[in-house]
Design a protein around this nucleic acid. Structure first.
Lengths: 250, 250
DNA sequence: CGAGCGATTGAACGCTCTCAAAGTGAGTGG
DNA sequence: CCACTCACTTTGAGAGCGTTCAATCGCTCG
């Protein structure tokens, strides 16, 4: 059913020496960007000691909304989608996360959403209660977490504006620009952008259907504003126009 | 243009004695529920010393998205709406806040949204930098803030599901239930609920038009599920059915 | 009592959805 | 190497939900 595997490593704490997770955190590709960035090298060992690395195939669950929220996750590589379901199966994707992003927000003692991989993904897993200990010991970690939550809240409000008031075309353009901005924030070029999610995932993120997504992508393609490249890459040929279209001034 | 008034009071710090804000925080009706609840009496004096009370008429701006986010607010009484605008004037209300709620989330150094009163409202105003000092001194305040941000994030995701995937009828029922749950959390009865916002505000919150809101309220009324009472009260006569309708199993 | 604004109701339109079919591409096995 | 499969995407035609435009109603406040 899945090629999931867990590389366990707790055991005795040998600070600087051994491999704690898939790679020791000091070498972690997302070090500095995520929560861990708030920690000094020695503090990181405390973190490394309580964490596990997991490698997941595409479209595999990371956790389900209904589960006990015992774990927190940090994405090392790959893309993950967060979503909620209605009883009749309608799905709303609330966000896509990538390397260095943090997930596991809980309400009460279950998660606030379900999470599945989009691409092959590697995550670091912590036990929530261990994290709580760390928060106690390293107050600036608390601060970092709050700042990340604030950023996410602002993003959620942009998404609320998009879902409530934008047309299909505006939604699509906003989405492409979002991908571009995120890529830029991670030091990648603004274009072409990597868009590994299926039409169905995009639709469920934007509150549309796959058909509408496809039709509007075609429209943008026809107008020469974007180009679909191989390997899920999209070339944004006219970012200025995309901006205009994303806020409905056309 | 407005009957806004500010009752200033900084001056010399006389801890337990004088009235600092409209009423001394110790007597504050929302004490215990909001951020302040994380503070002990003596800590509260530190807070009271840096705050001002403001009284605002209905539909008055509290702050604008574009402003410098120098202040944080805490609602003492009344209802406030948060919203974002598109260039062509389309508006999306991202939330309604009430007594004990906290507002002033910033991205960079401007606010993440604009805020206006719905009813006559009293707010406490702090300077953000003073708040930062307090956070330094009282780490558990940090924790409280993070926990509030998490709750808001979960609420934002419910709203995203609502906007992206629910029908007009489902949206309305969800909204009524939300009002009911909030009332209950504050110790009020589940019904009747207080719904002081205009149809237009409700529409902009649910991603609909005033006409659609009105039509669907009428439908619920006709089916005997709700009753519109005077003074913006709504009687939820069949909460169980509202629940069912809010998730589309009708 | 009249003015004015918000709420309600009605009729017609249009954007997006639904249903259906054809096209495309990656992976598999002959 | 090629044919086949299967899932995903694209395209088309028609329907429906919510919008738009417009008129009436009803409450609140001079």
């Amino acid at each position: 059913m899945s090629d999931e595997q867990i590389s366990e490593q707790s055991g005795t704490a040998l600070p600087a020496a051994g491999r704690r997770c898939a790679e020791p955190c000091g070498d972690c590709p997302v070090r500095g960007l995520s929560v861990c960035g708030a920690l000094a090298d020695d503090e990181l060992h405390a973190l490394a000691a309580i964490m596990q690395s997991r490698d997941l195939a595409p479209n595999q669950p990371v956790f389900d909304e209904a589960e006990q929220s015992d774990y927190l996750f940090n994405i090392t590589s790959g893309v993950v989608k967060l979503f909620k379901l209605l009883p009749d199966g309608r799905r709303q994707i609330t966000g896509f996360l990538g390397a260095s992003d943090f997930l596991g927000l809980a309400v009460g003692d279950s998660y606030a959403y379900s999470a599945e991989t989009v691409t092959r993904t590697t995550v670091c897993r912590f036990q929530r209660r261990h994290m709580d200990d760390l928060l106690e010991r390293f107050p600036h970690l608390q601060r970092r977490l709050f700042s990340m939550a604030s950023t996410e809240l602002a993003a959620a409000q942009d998404q609320i504006l998009l879902l409530g008031r934008k047309t299909a075309q505006e939604k699509l353009c906003s989405f492409l620009l979002l991908l571009s901005k995120r890529a830029a924030r991670r030091g990648h070029p603004e274009t072409p952008v990597y868009m590994p999610m299926s039409r169905s995932d995009i639709a469920d993120y934007l509150g549309l259907t796959t058909e509408t997504v496809s039709r509007n992508l075609t429209k943008l393609k026809t107008r020469g504003i974007i180009r679909l490249l191989p390997n899920s890459m999209v070339d944004l040929r006219d970012i200025a126009t995309l901006h205009t279209l994303s806020e409905g001034e056309s």
